[in-house]
Amino acid sequence: MEKVLKKDNLRDWVIALSSYEVHAPAFEDEVWNFKQVEKPEDAALDHTNTVKPPKDFSFPQREVYCEFAQKKGEAPMVTETLPALAAPKVVFGVRPCDGRAGPRNDTVFSKEFDDIYYWMRRKKVAQVGLACNTPPSRNCFCTAVGGSPHSEDGLDVLMVDLGDSYLVKALTKVGEEIVKAGGKALGNASAADKKTAAKAKADAEKAPMREIVDIKTVPENLQKNFDSEVWGEMAQACIGCGICTFLCPTCHCFDINDEVTNVTPLRGQRVRTWDNCQFPDFTMHSSGHNPRNTLGARLRQRVCHKFLYFVQNHDTYQCVGCGRCISECPVGIDIVAVVNKVAHDVG
């Protein structure tokens, strides 16, 4: 189903979606991030890309697994808590790279068994994508990892900017419902509209982006150069923070902790929180030994997870080329440069 939405009518579409919780990028504190739309007239899609990806909607930084309590002399009580089932969400302005992150995370949370916490949220999130006619960042490289600035993968709806209007294409059943709900806010797409969108797509795919050299050989070369000293050299400036991983749309490592809120009587929660391979306690054994004890080993883990292990396990790159880890790294560590160097430039 393809429709056309005049830019001025975005507001009406958002109003028509009142049975959903609508989120869109908002510019606050000088940064773009997804935010629930409070006033429909504020919804605009003039963002670059958000600093935080939309992964939080399905995989929040903190998820409570269960609550526990124990009265003195009694057996402990455990109560399962599942994500509160709020209204279904519609997320506007998802960039195609972040759209492609969805199916990758779905695989992780369902290959061996369905992670109920993830899926209860995920099933309630519809992603309305916004194609990139020009790359929003100088560090974009979706095309280098099998994506496209107009990719439809993982999205429910794709919007393409046509100037004064958007071509709106429903891609899933949920997407069709959302577009239908818009009613008269959206009109029928003409042949000319579709042609303009196709031209925008062709142009966008030709636009220069960061490049990964000969990506097909990258996994095997990373494997071959696993013990290279270059990892350590490239990680020398790394400060070991959580930026590159916490902001990554496909990083999904987590940690489980019991957080005690009251000591006597004992009360607390078992929570899952984001974890990441750059922190000093990641993969630390209880003995204190950590097999990944250097920044080089940690950088290698991050890059190899994206470009080697994920390929081995799931037949696709885990990185979708959003460029966040490059643009936000405080010291300029650049995954594209690291991949190119280790895969192709190590003697």
């Binding site: 930084q61 400060i239 923070c241 930026i243 902001l247 922190f279 306690d281 405080p330």
Partner: peptide
């Protein structure tokens, strides 16, 4: 988002054991 970049970048935050991650137990 508690990425701890503010701590990790600070030359004065050099403690071996930071209150936020227990790595010496």
């Amino acid at each position: 988002i508690r990425c701890f970049a503010c701590r990790s970048v600070c030359p004065m935050c050099y403690c071996e054991e930071c209150v936020v991650d227990s790595i010496n137990m």
